[in-house]
């Protein structure tokens, strides 16, 4: 059997404000990032990467990559605890207020820097696994931009994934403006693949994994370390306003006394939504 090529899997993970807590904008019209967690949706691509590594005969390295302020190193550390082999944290003043374009440009530079320093042999292949969306930006557009910038294949919204002999097989739901269908695709590497929350059940790090993570390498970079000019990571959008919507307040709550169905219909008629 020919020796299968090694694969370097890079998982971009984002440090985001916890959606269970109150989230807010600062006066600079930016999301307040003083506290955060590893985005829940970014645990799915990490899990997918680890499953590929565990099933592979060839050597597979899993690197986590995060872009964010100082605090984002906690997301990188969490990724190491979950099982990444190493982690990279790109943090630079120039990236404050980054939009999709700036984020994908910086991710591209960081991915290339990781590959340049990879200990895997020269014919190793590259797979980038992302989440389906970040929990604060929620654009789901970073994966496509990263694929375009890397010149890699793009497969988004993946619910099943396997990698055999350097060839990906993926099941995805294609939702278009005219129709939607389920597709089963095959693609060679390099590829950028976004993985949904249907793809797997992410593992929790146990005590042993948490201890082991302390010995794993975590590299911190600035833009200059990944050879990117600040101008190349400039945001293409400006935000003019960010207003809190008046929070929804509870309306009338009644306990059913045998006539609640009729009462709802009366309410709907009064509100003219019938």
């Amino acid at each position: 059997m020919p020796h299968a090529a090694a694969v370097h899997i890079i998982v971009p993970v984002k440090w985001v404000p916890d959606a269970q807590l109150e989230r807010r904008f600062t006066e600079q019209r930016r999301i307040d990032r003083s506290e955060g967690i590893l985005g829940e949706l970014d645990e799915y691509p990490l899990e997918a990467a680890l499953q590929i590594k565990e099933a592979a005969e060839a050597e597979v390295r899993v690197s986590a990559l995060t872009i964010g302020p100082d605090g984002a190193s906690t997301a990188a550390k969490k990724a190491l605890q979950i099982g990444a082999d190493d982690a990279f944290h790109l943090s630079d003043e120039a990236l404050t207020g980054a939009d999709v374009s700036a984020t994908s440009a910086a991710l591209k530079a960081a991915v290339e820097q990781i590959l340049a320093g990879s200990e895997l042999d020269g014919d190793a292949q590259t797979l980038v696994l992302t989440g389906m969306s970040s929990e604060d930006g929620e654009s789901g557009a970073v994966p496509a931009q990263l694929a375009e910038r890397l010149g890699a294949h793009l497969i988004t919204q993946v619910t099943e994934l396997s990698l055999e002999e350097g060839r990906l097989t993926a099941t995805r739901v294609s939702t278009g403006s005219g129709h939607s269908e389920q597709q089963k695709l095959a693609a060679p590497l390099p590829a950028v693949v976004s993985v949904t929350d249907q793809a797997n059940d992410p593992r929790y790090p146990n005590f042993k994994a948490i201890m082991a993570a302390k010995k794993k390498p975590l590299t911190t970079w600035q833009l200059s370390d990944v050879a990117l000019e600040p101008a190349a990571a400039e945001a293409k959008l400006q935000v003019h306003s960010a207003e809190a919507r008046p929070p929804r307040t509870a309306g009338e709550i009644i306990t059913d006394e045998g006539d609640a169905g009729v009462k709802i219909v009366e309410f709907l008629a009064k509100e003219r939504v019938l």
């Binding site: 929620e138 959008l237 306003s241 929070p247």
Partner: peptide, 17 residues
């Protein structure tokens, strides 16, 4: 609408574009 509909933002192209 952003942050699960709790905020509304307005935005346009920056000078860079």
């Amino acid at each position: 609408p952003v942050l699960a509909g709790t905020y509304t933002t307005t935005a346009s192209l920056a000078d860079a574009a």
